[in-house]
């Protein structure tokens, strides 16, 4: 006869531990409430501050009583660590919340299949739409991707696989380039390409500036990803009679695929909401422009900027709706890229 063993987790928190934690939280909450009521302090920030201090003190005291000074220090440190996480997440949640709250009223059925050619930002919300801006942004991102992904990844390959004489200076330049303000990239294309050569706005001009901004992100992230690929694999490939480039193409790049996809995602994130060069180079426009190489083109950042400038309540709601659409769009791009890269890996 074998005794039946039930799976247990002796390391898990006991109910009494949970109760104590809950008590600390409740008491800290109550204390902050009382403290703010009694003293001169006001506002959400005051509640948060007092709550945090009370929580740190209380959990440290409990830890000290039950397990001594080291445990008390441990409790204080973990409180601070959680505070760090909260401080990171809070502003993001707050932004997300504000955008959704202000953007939702601007959504309507025709939003994604009309452009603004027959409406102005101050018209009632239900007229017009942002088709021109969405297609424009997608065009800009697509053109920038076509140019920056090969250049960025080839740069990373030069740094990690060729390791040529210029690797040091190039790495330095790429790092410096990632600090270039976007307006500078915009002015550069304006004075080097738009004025002397094309003499007109187009999606291509905008995406050239975005490419400048995107390359450093892609190149640096790809370099880090490629450095993580073990050298064993490169040696195994060459030992099987592959040339360096066949080994890179068949073994190193596929092994790095999901990391490279992350690099591309980060690049898109860098440019999707970029506004300054867009204002300089694309000319805006309220109509869908199917030709990416000629004529002014709208984009979501441009639409937001233009609507905010118009100033009326309708226009401002339009701007928030544009922000919401931009965020959702970037989110969809992320999900798509993620699932694409993981599907290929687990084929």
């Amino acid at each position: 006869m074998s005794t039946l063993a039930t799976p247990q987790k002796p390391w898990a928190k006991r109910p009494i531990d949970r109760a104590r934690e809950l008590a600390i939280v409740l008491f800290a909450g109550f204390f902050s409430f009382a403290f703010v009521a009694v003293t001169e302090m006001k506002g959400k920030l005051a509640y948060a501050l007092i709550f945090f201090i009370a929580y740190a003190l209380l959990s440290a005291t409990f830890a000290f009583i039950s397990r001594g000074a080291p445990a008390a220090k441990d409790a204080v440190v973990s409180t601070f660590v959680s505070l760090g996480a909260v401080l990171t997440v809070l502003p993001m949640l707050s932004i997300l919340f504000t955008v959704i709250k202000n953007g939702l009223p601007g959504l309507h059925l025709g939003l994604l299949n009309h452009d603004m050619s027959m409406a102005t930002p101050t018209d009632p919300i239900a007229t017009g739409g942002i088709l021109h801006a969405v297609t424009g942004t997608l065009t800009l991102v697509a053109l920038a991707l076509i140019m920056s992904v090969p250049i960025g990844i080839l740069t990373a390959l030069y740094l990690t696989e060729v390791k040529g004489k210029f690797a040091g200076p190039i790495r330095f330049l790429v790092q410096a380039m990632s600090g270039v303000p976007s307006i500078v990239a915009g002015l550069f294309i304006l004075s080097a390409v738009l004025y002397p050569i094309t003499k007109g706005y187009s999606a291509l001009m905008g995406s050239l500036a975005l490419t400048i901004l995107m390359i450093p992100t892609i190149a640096r992230t790809s370099e880090e990803v490629l450095l993580l690929i073990p050298n064993d694999l490169r040696e195994a490939g060459t030992a099987l009679g592959g040339t360096q480039w066949r080994t890179v193409a068949m073994i190193v790049l596929p092994a790095a695929r999901s990391g490279l996809m992350t690099a591309v995602i980060l690049g898109v994130a860098r440019i999707a909401g970029e506004t300054a060069p867009i204002l300089l180079l694309t000319g805006g426009g309220d109509k869908v422009n199917p030709n990416p190489f000629n004529g002014s083109v709208g984009s979501i950042p441009y639409y937001i900027w233009k609507s905010f400038n118009a100033g009326s309540p309708e226009a401002i709601t339009r701007a928030w709706a544009g922000l919401l659409v931009l965020m959702v769009l970037v989110f969809i791009l992320f999900i798509a890229a993620r699932s694409l890269s993981s599907r290929k890996i687990s084929k």
């Binding site: 073990p230 064993d232 694999l233 040696e235 195994a236 490939g237 099987l240 009679g241 592959g242 066949r246 080994t247 068949m250 073994i251 596929p254 092994a255 695929r257 890996i345």
Partner: peptide
């Protein structure tokens, strides 16, 4: 050091493709 992006079969035949 099998190639991580390839299946067992592809690993065996990888030399042919490489060369």
């Amino acid at each position: 050091n099998p190639f991580p992006s390839m299946t067992i079969g592809e690993n065996v035949l990888s030399g042919l493709k490489l060369a």
